Computed example of a mutant assay.
Amino acid sequence: MTLILYELGGLDGRRYSQFSWRTRLALAHKGLAADVRPVAVSDKQAIAFSGQDKVPILVDGDTVVSDSWAIAAYLEQAWPDRPSLFGGPIGTGLSRFVNTYVDRSLVPQLVPLVMVDVVACVGPEDAGHLRGQIEGLFRRSLEELAAARDTDILGFRKLLDPFRATLRGQPFLCGAQPAYADYILFSLFQWARIVSRFELLDPADRLAAWREAMLDLHGGLARREPARAA
């Protein structure tokens, strides 16, 4: 039975959800294909069947799984004979930590830096929806949030130090080969790459080389998505 993945779609077919990219790469890691269906961020009716209002959503027959972490866990359980996303229970626990750190420490630092660019990549209704959400959360306009990003980016880069240090001794966060923890962190850079021309990393940063390697994975899956700079 065909897997179906619901994810955010923007102008010119852009697939800009960082969380959906975690799922896309997890599917590729497992060697699984999915029928990808884009939805507008403001169109909650299109995904009402899932019992909640966010993507990604994976549909496997009668099974509906929402949330990128829950989808990864489902893929690992449903296809145990395919390459592992976690490498066993210990790796699952460590990947959960990475997921939590990225979502609670990195995402809140990154959103103010590039969200002003996101609204230019979606239609007017979605742009209004996103602007209202983020400006209500930060109590500042998107333009005000972005005005200080040339200096605020330094704080974001500092938060990346644990990953940078890890990559001094191995090519990927998960060791000799990438796995789900790599996909979690990479999703932020892929999101920024798709929606913004603002550069998150110094070219000499060890993470910049890792990002290039991640873009080449699975036949260049992530690299094929057009960058905003292009």
Score class of each variant (00 low, 15 high):
E212M: 09
I71Y: 05
D161P: 01
K158M: 14
L142D: 01
R223Q: 12
A28S: 09
L106S: 04
K30H: 08
A229N: 07
V119H: 06
A73I: 13
P56V: 11
P203L: 08
L207P: 06
S50E: 12
R131G: 11
I153Q: 04
G61F: 06
Y180M: 12
L173M: 13
V59Q: 03
A148D: 15
A179W: 01
D53I: 13
A179K: 05
A230T: 13
F189Y: 02
A230G: 14
P203Q: 02
C121H: 01
A120Q: 10
L217K: 02
F138I: 12
R24N: 00
E135P: 11
P203F: 02
C174K: 09
A26T: 09
D35K: 07
R96I: 11
D202K: 06
V111A: 15
G88H: 07
P226R: 04
P178K: 03
M214C: 15
Q177Y: 01
L160I: 00
I57H: 10
L110R: 01
E144T: 10
P89S: 08
R14C: 08
A165D: 13
R168W: 04
L160E: 01
A229K: 02
G31H: 00
V119G: 03
A147R: 02
G13R: 00
D216R: 15
L185F: 00
L75S: 08
L160S: 07
S50G: 11
